[in-house]
């Protein structure tokens, strides 16, 4: 179990430190790039919780999709058009209140549930893919389909917005 603990603390540290860089860095490019390590660390923590499919999906969607898009946006506005983009602190008091409420909720949630969660059973990696797929296609088929329709609508909307209007 010692190796497991070591791996957990390494990845927890990576997640926390890179998360702090995301929030506190004044340079928005550094924030965007250190988000990679945050996502990666969270994925690694999922693996340690035996949620292998969730971990890989996390990397595929957050790193491969959202982060790349974010970097594209930042780079195109920051370097090509040479607009100086900096992050600063504005509206400190409302932000502090919201942050405190969220932190309180999370702390309450983890306090009320942490007793029920044990360390994952030792042994070989268990598979979650089959179970997830079956659940999505049986018990949760309606939320699943609604989510896909929402995504499709967003896709069509994006294509419509980006389309070049013909001057007639």
């Amino acid at each position: 179990m010692q190796l497991f603990d070591l791996v957990f603390y390494v990845f927890a540290l990576i997640t926390l430190i890179s998360g702090c860089v995301v929030v506190f860095s004044k340079n928005i490019i550094y924030s965007a790039f250190s988000l990679l390590f945050t996502f990666f660390g969270v994925a690694a923590l999922y693996v340690l919780l035996h949620a292998d499919f969730l971990a890989v999906t996390q990397i595929l969607i957050y790193v491969g999709g959202i982060l790349v898009l974010l970097l594209f946006g930042v780079m195109l506005t920051n370097n090509v058009i040479s607009v100086d983009m900096k992050t600063g602190t504005i509206q400190a008091i409302p932000a502090l209140i919201i942050a405190a409420v969220v932190a309180g909720t999370l702390a309450g949630l983890s306090y009320s549930t942490w007793r029920g969660v044990g360390v994952p059973a030792a042994g070989g990696p268990q598979t979650t893919t089959g179970t997830l797929g079956r659940m999505l296609m049986t018990s949760y088929v309606i939320p699943f389909e609604i989510a896909s329709v929402v995504l499709l609508v967003a896709l069509i909307g994006a294509a419509m917005t980006a389309r070049r209007h013909r001057n007639s």
């Binding site: 790039f33 999906t57 491969g64 999709g65 970097l71 990696p125 598979t127």
Partner: peptide, 17 residues
């Protein structure tokens, strides 16, 4: 791992970054 193929597709996104 059980999801080897899925893992290979997803991990290549680190190269893009």
């Amino acid at each position: 791992i059980n999801i080897g193929l899925f893992y290979v597709i997803s991990i290549s996104s680190i190269v893009v970054v």
